[in-house]
Design a binder for these strands. Structure first.
Lengths: 234, 234
DNA sequence: TATTTAAAAGTGGTTAACCAAATATAGTTA
DNA sequence: TAACTATATTTGGTTAACCACTTTTAAATA
């Protein structure tokens, strides 16, 4: 009997409001550059409190959809209406992203980061990467999970690439990776020794500034993760 | 005389609060899994209103640093303390990213997106890409700027790649690209004909499902942009 | 009529009080 | 003593009033 009950979609007030405002924009009732209705009017029309409208607009500003000007108004930014069609929902939906895409994209970013790191790393970078690696190994030796320490090792490499955007994007997808790893219990204890060896090889190649080999080592390291993820596709 | 005046760093209250909370976490006064002090106590200690603390925590939740539980408390998420060291500031600083990194990373993402699009595109995808291209051309013919339409063309390709993360990341960096393009007045009218031709080649290769040639065509298309950006490095 | 000026209406920003749910505490009972 | 219960406290969520600044409006002035 219970299987006939459908899961209730809890949709927070602010998400509802965001949807409404998006409609306002995509139906061209508000053009880019135009002012959004004031927070008070929005609140009254939507039948919610101004605080909720405020929170929704705050999110919208995060996504770069609108720009609030103190005491003056909130304007829709120039990024054209057409692009907005699916934009907001897509970014919001990133939370429920499929693991395969996540791993593929991670590999793409990390390969490039490793290549660049081999070329542009400073001695200080190398030192920090090694420290991160040791932190990972130590935690592993104590028999604890070390997903976060592992990720930090990779982020340090991205840092050494001197490409700030590359690093930022890695930071953005990192929480999702951590979440999925823990959910799926990816951490295979038997692979620890192999992982440690692969890390050391990557560092060696970065250390000797061999970009091609560094990228190759990282690719090898990540392909195992990808193979694993494919076994868990729903 | 005026040159002796230093620009005043306007730092909004919430950014200050975020910094304080970050310190609280990175100095291990609050461990992952621990509850953050209540909003009221934070507000009192920091000498600000609870609303500001609320806004700061909201941002922190966006970044995945904390998770708020209604009527119970706000907890620091598992993503380890070490990674937090520079995380928040880095993401916040992404607004002032250097154009070179931005273009490099865009090329990286787009090459992969184009490759995948050639393989995985549906007929519907192809149709939408062509529509986006025509929108771009039409606006160009009217002598208007068409940065946004250009970007939308590229986003449609990312959509066809069927890799949601890839698309999301492109959406994230798109506003920055638009901003910089407009600031630098990159749109070179003399290149219009060349750009249109390159777009058509990319579509042809995606249409015939030739992944290698599609990626190559996209690379050619973007290299011009990269060359331009290097002439404008500060 | 064109320009200036002053008042009023509107804006986002901020604050303090109140709400219901979750939690901790003390009291009661077996 | 242990388990349960009722109460008090603490929590994030919500609301409405107030603030300072901006924009609009309309009146006064040249």
């Amino acid at each position: 009997m219970l299987e006939n009950l459908h899961k209730i979609e809890v949709q927070s007030p602010v998400d509802l409001i965001i949807t409404q405002i998006r409609n306002l924009i995509s139906t061209k009732q508000v053009l880019p550059g135009d002012k959004l209705p004031s927070e008070r009017k929005l609140a009254e029309h939507l039948g919610v409190s101004r605080g909720n409208v405020r929170a929704a607009i705050s999110k919208l500003e995060f996504y770069g959809i609108v720009k609030v000007h103190a005491n003056s108004g909130t304007r829709v930014t120039g990024l054209g209406i057409p692009a907005l069609e699916g934009l907001i929902t897509d970014i919001l939906a990133m939370e429920n992203v499929d693991f395969g895409s996540l791993v593929d994209t991670r590999i793409l970013l990390e390969k490039e980061a490793t290549r660049l790191a081999a070329i542009k790393r400073t001695d200080q970078d190398l030192k920090e990467i090694k420290t991160a690696m040791l932190n990972y190994e130590n935690k592993l030796m104590k028999g604890e999970q070390a997903v976060e320490e592992d990720l930090l090792f990779h982020i340090k490499i991205a840092e050494a690439s001197k490409n700030s955007v590359l690093k930022s994007l890695m930071l953005i997808i990192t929480p999702d990776i951590v979440k999925n790893f823990i959910n799926l219990k990816v951490c295979d204890e038997s692979n620890n020794r192999k992982t440690i060896e692969e890390h050391r090889q990557i560092i060696d190649m970065i250390s000797t500034r061999d970009a091609d080999q560094a990228e190759k080592a990282m690719t090898t390291h990540l392909e195992a993760v990808k193979a694993f993820s494919q076994n868990f596709k729903p």
